[in-house]
Structure formats: structure tokens, C-alpha cells
């Protein structure tokens, strides 16, 4: 089945917006609705659309790394953020926070939970994409 021209054009416009939105959700998650899981679902929706319009190969090319590597990287990141507080004699996975000054005297509070959330994002996105791309491959074969 050939994807329609409408789908292709709409996808091109929408996917970038969806992906930006997913990063936005990831970043605001700590203080407002959103977070790694929701962000990853949005990103997966974007990639799934892209896969429907352009095929699995294009998604793989856009991702640059295989989705299963995303899963592995996410697991490593989550475990690593858990280990960080142990250097300060705190139990595994304790939140460790830093105040970071940026330009213009802006200050943000950055902590290990953010990286934990990033790991969640990578794992969930990787997991969904692994499945969707495998299904797409199967469809394209038959």
C-alpha cells in the first residue's frame, strides 16, 4: 500500500512539531504535567507517523542509532543516576541537586531525577520504536 500524498505532506509538517513538543514535555515534567514517559509517548507517536508515511528505513536513518541501543543507553543512564548519590554516601537513587548559574544571572536547579527521567524517556521511546519498526519491517516484507 502506498502512503497518500496528504499523509506524507502532513507528516513532514507535523513530525518536527511533535518532536519539539515531546522535548518540551520532558523538560517541564518536574513542575507541570509531562515528564519522561509522556514525552516519550509523544515522540513515539511522531516517529510512528513518520514510519507510516516514509517507511521504517527513513525512521532508522533519522534516528541514527538503533532503537534497541536507545533502550540500553536508557538503562545505563538510569543505573548511573542511581549510583551518583552513592559517591556522597547516600543510598542508591537518592536525588542529588545542584544549583547551576547560567548567563544573565539565571539560575537553574538541576538534579539526578532529571537524568533519571531522561533515561525513562530513552527506554520508553526505544521500546515503542523497536516494536513499531519491527512491525513496519514485517509489513514491508509481505
Amino acid at each position: 500500500m502506498k502512503p497518500s500524498l496528504i499523509l506524507k505532506t502532513a507528516t513532514r509538517l507535523l513530525v518536527s512539531l511533535i518532536l519539539v513538543f515531546s522535548v518540551y514535555l520532558l523538560l517541564r515534567g518536574h513542575n507541570a504535567p509531562g515528564g519522561g514517559f509522556a514525552g516519550a509517548l509523544v515522540a513515539a507517536t511522531g516517529f510512528a507517523m513518520y514510519a507510516m508515511a516514509e517507511g521504517a528505513a527513513s525512521v532508522r536513518q533519522a534516528l541514527r542509532v538503533g532503537p534497541s541501543r536507545l533502550i540500553v543507553a536508557g538503562i545505563f543512564l538510569v543505573i548511573a543516576t542511581g549510583l551518583v548519590p552513592m559517591f556522597w554516601q547516600m543510598p542508591f537513587l537518592t536525588g542529588k541537586w545542584w544549583q547551576i548559574s547560567l548567563f544573565n544571572n539565571m539560575e537553574i536547579t538541576l538534579g539526578t531525577p532529571f537524568f533519571f527521567d531522561l533515561g525513562v524517556y530513552a527506554i520508553v521511546l526505544g521500546a515503542i520504536l523497536t516494536l513499531i519498526l519491527a512491525l513496519e519491517d514485517k509489513m514491508e516484507e509481505s
Binding site: 518536574h30 513542575n31 504535567p33 509531562g34 515528564g35 536525588g95 531525577p113 533519571f116 527521567d117 525513562v120
Partner: peptide, 11 residues
């Protein structure tokens, strides 16, 4: 350091 309770609980 988070205002979103659900997310703070999760992460």
C-alpha cells in the same frame, strides 16, 4: 525541587 507531584513520585 518539583511542583508536579506525580512526576516527583515517579522519578
Amino acid at each position: 525541587h518539583g511542583r508536579n507531584i506525580v512526576n516527583v513520585i515517579l522519578v
